[in-house]
Computed example of a mutant assay.
Amino acid sequence: MIVRHAKSDWDNAGISDFDRPLNHRGFKSASEMAQRLHKKGIVPQYLLSSPALRARTTASIFAETLNLAGPSYNQSIYEANYPALLHIINNLPDAYQFVALFGHNPGLSDLLYNLTGQIYDMPTCAIAVVDFDIDSWKEVSGGTGNISYYDYPKNGD
């Protein structure tokens, strides 16, 4: 599952990009999207997030709503491009069959498009569940995935 962080706050010019928090709409959207997953029974086994504050917060809201352990963090997700994100996916533990990856654009949109050939732009807090017919995360590569679920907050980007 690929999840773009919820809407962040651009109002405080003194905060670095890495430390930007979610804004009010971001908190609301993250909670709403996690609840939608919960109602549909779409619950990943493991959450992996960028350590940037807006992604960390989004992942934590999902963990709490879905009754999961808190997310793990990987610095390489922050500002990652498609090849870097694919490398992270290829190195996921095979003990998990369903992993949620929380990160940023444009990398996540590029990842989704390259894995599936579908949907090029993910708005904030968009969720895409991608299915693979594989035995190991190492087998994930371009064009090997199919989107089985896609949703995003309807309040715009």
Rank of each mutant, 00 (worst) to 15 (best):
residue 104 H to V: 01
residue 78 Y to I: 00
residue 105 N to R: 05
residue 100 A to K: 04
residue 55 A to K: 01
residue 108 L to C: 07
residue 47 L to M: 10
residue 106 P to M: 03
residue 95 A to K: 10
residue 72 S to P: 06
residue 113 Y to R: 15
residue 106 P to S: 07
residue 90 N to D: 13
residue 110 D to H: 09
residue 98 F to A: 11
residue 48 L to I: 06
residue 105 N to H: 02
residue 51 P to W: 02
residue 117 G to K: 05
residue 98 F to N: 14
residue 42 I to P: 12
residue 42 I to R: 11
residue 63 A to F: 03
residue 98 F to G: 00
residue 84 A to G: 10
residue 59 A to P: 10
residue 118 Q to D: 10
residue 112 L to Q: 03
residue 113 Y to C: 05
residue 71 P to R: 08
residue 62 F to E: 00
residue 81 N to A: 07
residue 113 Y to M: 06
residue 62 F to Q: 03
residue 105 N to D: 09
residue 42 I to C: 12
residue 38 H to G: 08
residue 115 L to M: 01
residue 52 A to V: 06
residue 100 A to D: 00
residue 37 L to G: 07
residue 101 L to C: 01
residue 63 A to G: 14
residue 79 E to I: 04
residue 73 Y to H: 04
residue 92 L to P: 02
residue 56 R to W: 06
residue 101 L to D: 04
residue 117 G to P: 00
residue 71 P to T: 03
residue 89 I to C: 02
residue 52 A to P: 00
residue 114 N to Q: 11
residue 71 P to A: 09
residue 56 R to D: 06
residue 55 A to W: 00
residue 64 E to P: 00
residue 117 G to D: 05
residue 88 I to M: 07
residue 69 A to P: 01
residue 90 N to A: 10
residue 35 Q to P: 03
residue 42 I to A: 14
residue 90 N to L: 12
residue 91 N to R: 07
residue 93 P to S: 12
residue 72 S to N: 09
residue 39 K to W: 11
residue 91 N to E: 13
residue 113 Y to H: 13
residue 75 Q to T: 06
residue 61 I to L: 09
residue 88 I to L: 11
residue 115 L to S: 06
residue 84 A to K: 14
residue 84 A to I: 10
residue 87 H to M: 13
residue 37 L to C: 08
residue 72 S to E: 08
residue 48 L to D: 08
residue 75 Q to N: 10
residue 115 L to Q: 06
residue 105 N to A: 08
residue 64 E to V: 11
residue 55 A to C: 11
residue 43 V to R: 15
residue 113 Y to V: 01
residue 115 L to G: 03
residue 99 V to Y: 03
residue 69 A to S: 15
residue 87 H to A: 09
residue 66 L to T: 03
residue 113 Y to Q: 06
residue 71 P to E: 12
residue 118 Q to M: 07
residue 82 Y to Q: 12
residue 57 T to M: 05
residue 92 L to G: 04
residue 117 G to L: 09
residue 64 E to T: 15
residue 101 L to M: 08
residue 42 I to L: 15
residue 59 A to C: 11
residue 104 H to P: 13
residue 72 S to M: 03
residue 48 L to Q: 08
residue 103 G to A: 06
residue 59 A to H: 05
residue 90 N to F: 11
residue 68 L to V: 01
residue 99 V to A: 09
residue 81 N to P: 03
residue 99 V to G: 13
residue 74 N to R: 12
residue 46 Y to A: 04
residue 42 I to F: 14
residue 51 P to H: 12
residue 58 T to I: 01
residue 40 K to P: 02
residue 77 I to Y: 07
residue 64 E to F: 15
residue 56 R to Q: 13
residue 44 P to E: 15
residue 67 N to H: 15
residue 53 L to P: 00
residue 66 L to Q: 10
residue 91 N to I: 01
residue 86 L to Y: 13
residue 47 L to E: 03
